[in-house]
């Protein structure tokens, strides 16, 4: 009971006021967050629409200029006229996309199969195999980069797409994720499939794979972006300009002072480098949210 003399209408009004303030505060905080995260992207977008001298003067324009078409055409076809003559974005985007795709598809394929073996089959050395895979979690590419480099060179895979992708495909994260997921699949599905007469391959294809679609989609997004953002390994293992990826190319375009950077082209290139991952997220997100809401174990 409220204290005497306070009527319910006043209490209700106070509640409304408090809720209104809560909403305003929440929104203020959200808007601040959006500004912090979106501002650099906005600067890049704006920067890619001005000519080199505008940005070169040191004023950072906040509104778009009129050079967008020229800048993007230059980035797409030639990579600019600057100190470091970059490869055209069309080539580097293709290299990056191919690399990220191969890494994502390769990792998912290998992980699905190895998790399938570890979870659903009894064979000697099963746990040893599992723990060996698990241990590689502690050895990311950066840690094993020198021996990996040696191996790739010895295998004559230097300066090749295979050399670029294979070492990045070998990793345990996806295997572990699929293992965890497979462990949640009820034994009855396996047994029902056995009685239906489905062998291991059919069970994998007809039942396990469709049930894993959601996880595959989610992992694909993560792994594609992981592959796309690779910098150190491509920098090391490829020096053929024809195989250069856009993340490496972009970094190389930024010089260290002895010549004018073509910021307008660099920014256009950065925007182009941003688009494919964004596209993958947007397209796949729809897909795996659909999967999340419709799949039932």
């Amino acid at each position: 009971m409220p204290a005497a003399g306070i009527d319910d209408a006043a209490l209700a009004a106070a509640t409304l006021r408090r809720q209104a303030w809560d909403r305003r505060l929440t929104h203020l905080w959200l808007i601040l967050g959006v500004l912090v995260f979106a501002f650099p992207v906005w600067i890049t977008l704006v920067g890619s629409t001005h000519d080199a001298s505008t940005i070169g003067r040191g004023d950072v324009p906040l509104l778009p200029g009129g050079q967008a078409i020229a800048n993007y055409t230059a980035a797409w076809t030639s990579g600019g006229e600057g100190r470091y003559r970059a490869s055209p974005a069309s080539l580097m985007l293709w290299n990056s996309a191919l690399m990220a795709l191969l890494i994502a598809v390769g990792k998912i394929t290998i992980s699905l199969l190895s998790a399938y073996a570890v979870v659903f089959f009894q064979f000697p050395g099963r746990m040893l195999a599992f723990w060996t895979i698990f241990l590689t979690l502690m050895l990311p590419v950066e840690v094993r980069i020198i021996p990996t480099y040696q191996v790739i060179v010895s295998l004559d895979l230097f300066n090749s797409m295979a050399g670029l992708t294979i070492p990045l495909i070998a990793s345990a994260t996806a295997t572990l994720l699929f293992r965890q997921f497979f462990l949640t699949i009820p034994d009855e599905y396996v047994e029902a499939a056995k009685i239906d007469g489905a062998g291991p391959v059919r069970f994998f294809r007809d039942i396990l794979l469709p049930l894993s679609v959601t996880n595959i989609a989610a992992l694909f997004v993560i792994l594609f972006i992981y592959g796309w953002n690779q910098y150190l390994w491509p920098l090391l293992v490829v020096n053929d300009r024809g195989l250069e990826t856009i993340v490496v190319g972009l970094a190389k375009m930024i010089g260290n002072g002895d010549a004018q950077n073509e910021w307008n082209i660099i920014m256009a290139m950065a925007v182009l480098a941003l688009l494919p991952p964004v596209l993958v997220v947007v397209v796949m997100q729809r897909w795996f949210i659909k999967g999340l809401t419709e799949t039932e174990k």
Binding site: K194, I195, D196, G197
Partner: peptide, 20 residues
């Protein structure tokens, strides 16, 4: 023999219907 070769059918407690 394997379950599939025994010419039997089984109804499970949780039905085990393939959800997809």
């Amino acid at each position: 023999l394997e379950p599939a070769d025994r010419d039997i059918a089984m109804v499970f407690q949780n039905y085990a219907l393939y959800p997809h």
